[in-house]
Design a protein around this nucleic acid. Sequence first.
DNA 1: TATGAATGAGCTTTCATTCAT
DNA 2: CATGAATGAAAGCTCATTCAT
Lengths: 198, 198, 198, 198
Amino acid sequence: MARTKEQNDKMSLATKKKIMEAGLKLFSQKGFSMTSIKDIAQTAGISTGLIYRHFSSKDELFGELLENTIRELSKAIQFLSSHVSPLQAFAEMTSDLLKDIRSSEELSCYFLLVTRSILEEEALVQLAGLQKSDLSLFEKAAELIEKGQELGEFKPGNPFKLSLLYFSAIQGMAQMKLFMGERYIAPEVQDIMALLLR
Amino acid sequence: MARTKEQNDKMSLATKKKIMEAGLKLFSQKGFSMTSIKDIAQTAGISTGLIYRHFSSKDELFGELLENTIRELSKAIQFLSSHVSPLQAFAEMTSDLLKDIRSSEELSCYFLLVTRSILEEEALVQLAGLQKSDLSLFEKAAELIEKGQELGEFKPGNPFKLSLLYFSAIQGMAQMKLFMGERYIAPEVQDIMALLLR
Amino acid sequence: MARTKEQNDKMSLATKKKIMEAGLKLFSQKGFSMTSIKDIAQTAGISTGLIYRHFSSKDELFGELLENTIRELSKAIQFLSSHVSPLQAFAEMTSDLLKDIRSSEELSCYFLLVTRSILEEEALVQLAGLQKSDLSLFEKAAELIEKGQELGEFKPGNPFKLSLLYFSAIQGMAQMKLFMGERYIAPEVQDIMALLLR
Amino acid sequence: MARTKEQNDKMSLATKKKIMEAGLKLFSQKGFSMTSIKDIAQTAGISTGLIYRHFSSKDELFGELLENTIRELSKAIQFLSSHVSPLQAFAEMTSDLLKDIRSSEELSCYFLLVTRSILEEEALVQLAGLQKSDLSLFEKAAELIEKGQELGEFKPGNPFKLSLLYFSAIQGMAQMKLFMGERYIAPEVQDIMALLLR
DNA sequence: TATGAATGAGCTTTCATTCAT
DNA sequence: CATGAATGAAAGCTCATTCAT
């Protein structure tokens, strides 16, 4: 008879994953408008029509990728909150982020996807959720910074402002890496930490 | 004949200026693909056809704006080089850049235009020129940093790497400002300088 | 081997019948272009692929339904010819057609299918056959009308023209019924017969 | 300088008229789905893109044509209402409609457009308005029939039912004409009037 | 035989670009 | 020089059809 349901599900899932990987890569590299459905299909090695079996529109695909981003950011929030020493938490997070940036891997793409999605006005609906999520990341970080300031490890000043300073710098690094490619030389953890420590 | 040649030239120049201002504003706000020629014409208060008397294509308009950016960056390079104290040079440049970012003014737009132009693959031709110009900015800055290191003012380490660190952070700030709008709180000069000083 | 040839044939036949019923219903309700193969498959309770085991294309399915229509019309022709009294023949046929229209049943669908197939230019091939068949229906009816005129029962005038008048009206009723649904009030037999009688 | 505003308006109006004529012809002949924007553009002798300068979508073009139809039907209603003798009113209207059908002219197309729009589920919004308008035509006609019945000119029976009978027949004629083309022989006024008179 | 994932041609729609005025 | 109507290539999306299982 036909394929079994499990076989179909497996195929379907594999295809969806291919599409999302291609989408993440292309959207974060070229932006929403510059990335065509055909591009994504070619990168994923499938036909254009097949994308519409998994996502009802280009916007929806983009939206789902953004939601993933939110989820990834939430994980980072969790990570920050669950650590005891603010200093250690930031050091580890910075180390992870720089590693990602160096290797241009997924999280780095996510960071840029966020940036792009904001600059392009697509996805206005998701944006609300995204900005909130992003802000709450900044706020969680700010709380940690405040705790660090009490411990005398972090430099004094408005903790939220310092949080923004930190993430702006990280974002700039991801962008620059994408811009310069192999010629980019990523900084060391302590270079970034200098923004926060006394 | 009604108007004199000079009058025509003056009008022509004024029109071109209007187009470039509109282009800079829209491209840096919405990105290359999201900005239509009609948008630019409306913002400039002229007809679409007139744009093509001054620029042979949308790409060319974009390219010319990029070239302007390069020129602006060159000025920054000049500024850096002509100052005696590296520390003072960086402090002043940082102050200027942060001021621009705070007020979202022209130079800030230029910065984002560069970023966008890199992410969108339009303007591949100009890119080469831009990257070179950009790199030369980074290199000039690196030279200054090196000098500063010799004077014991700057922290030790690969000067080019520190230069990248500095400009990445600046770029991240500009992006974040655009993202968050009024909610963004720009850092102080010494917060940024912490990246470079011991 | 599991099933016998006969069992397979029976299943096959049952499937084909289900497809044709679904096709007739949907094509006459929504028209050729608005009806998708997926629609038909779902209505028939089978997979899309299976339709192509029975019909080589959507057009062919439509064509076969049209051929059925021709066959139905032929039966009406036979019916007309075999009756002695032209008056009685028309009265009975009219009664049957109005009954169909009132109940929106199969023959009514067929009528509309014909109409639709003519308006949509699909099925150009079948059309030839259909028009011929249709014309021959009109001609048979015309012959009967002529006979009725000789008997003094029908009004004088070009018999073919009267035949067209009659079938045009019937077709209009079918259409109007579909249009208005429950709000439609079908006429009585004698209302239609007034077109033909003195 | 440029074209004057009047010249532009004239060109614009002429183009819009060409589009609407092509649309009316093709939609009523082939139906909404079978008619492509390319078809309309070719028939109108313009480019596809130009259609979108006058109508924001295919649906809107169709909708505007439907609104025209409503307006035409309203005129017919006015015509009916303003005449003194019901008999004369119907005779004249019938004469006009048959003339249109014979020459396949505009009003005939409008009639079929209505029919098609109902069969295809596009234009659901307009449909409400259309059906109401159509019904009010039937009701106006019914009133006239009732008056005629009081004068003893029209046959007895439910006036609304007779009204439907009349318009169904007219609609059937229009359809048949389109179907058979030159081979169609239209009936005389009194042939149709036989539906209503004693 | 039966399934539904996968394909790709073709449709609607957008927009950079041209050109008559 | 200035306009905006007109063009047509290219994008997003649909759906008849194929094919591996």
